[in-house]
Simulated assay, not measured.
Amino acid sequence: MFTSPFRRRSILAAALCLAALLPARSEAQTPAPAPVRFSWDWAPQGYHAIWALAEERGLFRDAGLRVQMDRGYGSGDTISKVATGAYDVGFADVNALVQFNARNPDRRVIAVQMVFDTNPAAVVTLRRSGIRTAADLRGRNLGAPEGESSRVLFPVFARAAGVDASTIRWTSMTANLRETMLATGQVEAITGLQMAAVFSLRAAGVPAQDIVVLPYAAAGVDLYGHGIITSAAFAESHPEVLRGFLRASLGGLRAALADPAAGMAAMKRREPLFDEALELERFAMARDVAILTDGVRQKGFGTMEPDRMARLVAINAEVNQIANPPAPESLYSTAYLPPLADRMP
């Protein structure tokens, strides 16, 4: 059949127009990634590789998220910024939520996924002090920032270990001077997160064999540690975003546990001054002390049990002298976690 040159040109032009329209239609049907602002608890540490790998391996992208990650300045600061909406999600010590929510019931912040199943708070000292057990702390000079969670929880540790907390003399300092004051002999011991204090001392040149650690958990203080937090308002208004974030975080955690060196390399690409060798050791300590616990092996990553949360509220209310603590069930939610089968180690 004969087709005129004019008709052929018309058909070709129509085809080209259709081809040009198809990609635009496809792109229009693909939703833009949801932005999420995420604050860590502190400066870059080995355990933050969980989220560096989640980003680098496309887990956030696959969840439909575009995540902005920033360093933190302590759990209290992170909680406050999440409460005000400056950040959507944070990583912080869930013990600090008790006092914050008691003081700010209209800006409630909740835990939605536990990461440190065991609280890594500890007394850390040097061998030259002669301190080997909790009993040796009587009458000693301990240092920590005022309001820092491990210092606030010290009376709980002292009671569990059979030590009269009133015999302790305290020296206050900013967090960045804590390990320096121990290393220079201005205090005899400090309180802090085990992996933070130990590796800050190591970075300051203190040999590992000279460091003595008295973990609170070893004395029977059974508390959760750090977890992923968000505001109750954000959880209610963005449930699928939150579910996607927790799913990607779990994938990043599995990736970091499977290949810690890859996690440190991912952090190095984010932070040029990141010390891969030192932080690999820090991550290993966090894994062994707080992340991959017997409880996690039995009950899965991220789990928050009602009885442990109730105990956490009761203990924190006691040590902080909170007359009207928040109800334990108002402090956390497991509704956004992946299914238990997907959370088993």
Rank of each mutant, 00 (worst) to 15 (best):
L21C: 15
R151C: 06
R138K: 05
R9S: 09
S4P: 14
F301H: 06
H226R: 09
G130Q: 11
G64Y: 00
A217C: 02
A43S: 09
W42E: 00
L250V: 12
L21D: 08
E236V: 04
G302F: 13
M1Q: 10
A102F: 05
R308T: 00
A19I: 12
K268T: 02
Y47V: 09
A34Q: 14
S75T: 03
R169K: 11
D88A: 08
G263T: 02
E271S: 06
D275R: 05
A189G: 01
L137G: 03
V89E: 05
G76M: 07
I291G: 08
P120A: 09
Q194R: 08
T84E: 13
L214G: 02
A32G: 14
A183W: 02
R151E: 11
A233R: 12
S26G: 13
N141G: 05
M181Q: 09
I79D: 01
A277C: 08
R202Y: 15
A183G: 04
V89C: 03
P328L: 11
E146D: 11
R25K: 14
A49R: 07
R107K: 01
V89D: 03
D288E: 10
I11A: 13
T78A: 10
T171Y: 01
L278M: 15
R25Q: 15
A111R: 06
Y224T: 03
R159Y: 13
D222L: 00
S75E: 07
E56N: 13
I211W: 10
Q186V: 09
F157Q: 01
V296G: 01
A235K: 14
V109R: 15
A341G: 02
A197D: 12
E281S: 14
G300C: 10
N320S: 12
H226G: 05
A197G: 08
P260N: 05
A135K: 10
L214T: 05
G263N: 06
R269E: 13
R159D: 10
L331S: 14
R8F: 13
A189C: 02
L21S: 15
M304Q: 02
R297A: 08
V212A: 11
R108N: 10
L257S: 01
E148S: 11
A219I: 01
R57L: 12
